[in-house]
Design a protein around this nucleic acid. Structure first.
Lengths: 224, 224
DNA sequence: ACCTGAACACCGTTCAAGT
DNA sequence: ACCTGAACACCGTTCAAGT
């Protein structure tokens, strides 16, 4: 926030304006992609001078953060399912994965910014809560959460690669017809030319990571 | 590549020039950060007109890809250690992690671009090879590799967050003093305000993922 | 307190023109 | 084949000025 109002503010009607800006920005991103969110573009979209955004929100960095955070607040309200706390930990992870891909332009916007974790802010809190319910507390809960979210984030980045243009994808994938690949098994060489079954790989890996971090469920029959 | 020469080229002395450009670009990125790599900046660095880069390399997308690939070729030559194939799979993963953080500006450049995987291109091939040695072949080898690299990549992104400015970091971390955190255990709440022990968490998670993907080592006593 | 217009210092990209 | 200068259409940001 630059100077405007904010949470600590006196209210007035500036708060309304700031929210308007963020909502419009979010709509712009979802409709036309992360790179459409420029100060000038957003300003004309709002019928306002560019500098008005600076007054209400701040510079582009702050705009992006605020937009992503706003999105995270919406998405974080999704209820979590699962009969056991461990199941609910898994479910939060799947929720982050799913919503990140559903709103991939917001995800991309967040990634461009190093704020990859932000759009799942509320969901991270939820995960910490469920981890506590499994008996993982304190620094262990934090580290467990970071391990899970790091892996989820990595899979999301991998999944977003599917949106690249064919040429860009080609340019940035491992080349099996290259120099050093000749000693690979032909089956492996051929498999490497095709994309992985990411959803299935994600699910399997997620389970392994959660297993490594959450103690074995000793009272599986306790919750119904 | 735009039109210039390239691998398929007739040689001449243009090839030399293209390599010069990439080396200079790489040096620029390592010295002054990913965002210093602009067409204009690189051109003045080379004492050449901006358009010359277009002729030899192509547009910025192609420049970035080429620079990252070149870096990946260097880094991919690092020998891999380990007595068993499984140990060597782990070692490749650690190598990707370590070199990505050592050359974090190149990593950032690659990430900005969705080419996160590219700087580890050669290393991915190495990993595929070692996976085969553990008995994982074909689509299973590909999926195993993707699982491991996705997680490694996620941890790298998490580690790079440490470079953010304090304000940006503050803005983008989960707020425990927020609304919904009051029901957390105080120890967890406090732990969440501090960064995770990423290297240790990485090592533990990596082992779990590799275990889930590589069959149990039947000759455990083979290594010493 | 809120908003504007004009200006500054950058970008990537294209294209006709030179040798 | 290789390189240039000039121009186009964008950026983010600042700042003095308005109400």
């Amino acid at each position: 926030m630059a100077s405007g109002n904010g949470a600590n503010g006196t209210g007035r009607r500036a708060g309304i304006e700031a929210d308007e800006i963020l909502d419009r920005a979010l709509a712009l991103v979802e409709a036309e992609g992360a790179e459409a969110l420029t100060m000038r573009r957003l300003a004309t979209e709002l019928g306002v001078a560019t500098t008005t955004i600076y007054w209400h929100i701040g510079n582009r960095d702050e705009l992006v953060t605020a937009v992503v955070r706003r999105h995270g607040e919406r998405v974080g309200r999704t209820p979590v399912a699962g009969d056991t706390a461990r199941e609910r930990v898994l479910d939060v992870a799947r929720l982050i994965w799913r919503t990140s891909l559903e709103h991939r332009e917001v995800t991309r916007l967040a990634a461009e910014h190093g704020a990859s974790t932000l759009h799942a802010r509320r969901l991270e809190l939820t995960m910490a809560r469920e981890l506590e319910a499994t008996g993982v507390i304190g620094a262990a809960a934090r580290d467990a959460m970071r391990a899970i979210t790091a892996c989820v984030g990595g899979f999301i980045v991998a999944a977003l690669r599917a949106d690249l243009t064919p040429e860009a994808l080609q340019r940035t994938t491992v080349l099996v017809d290259d120099d050093g690949a000749s000693d690979l098994d032909p089956a492996t060489r051929e498999a490497l030319t095709e994309p992985a079954e990411l959803p299935a790989v994600f699910e399997a890996t997620l389970r392994a990571v959660v297993d490594s971090v959450v103690p074995a469920d000793l009272s599986a029959n306790a919750y119904l």
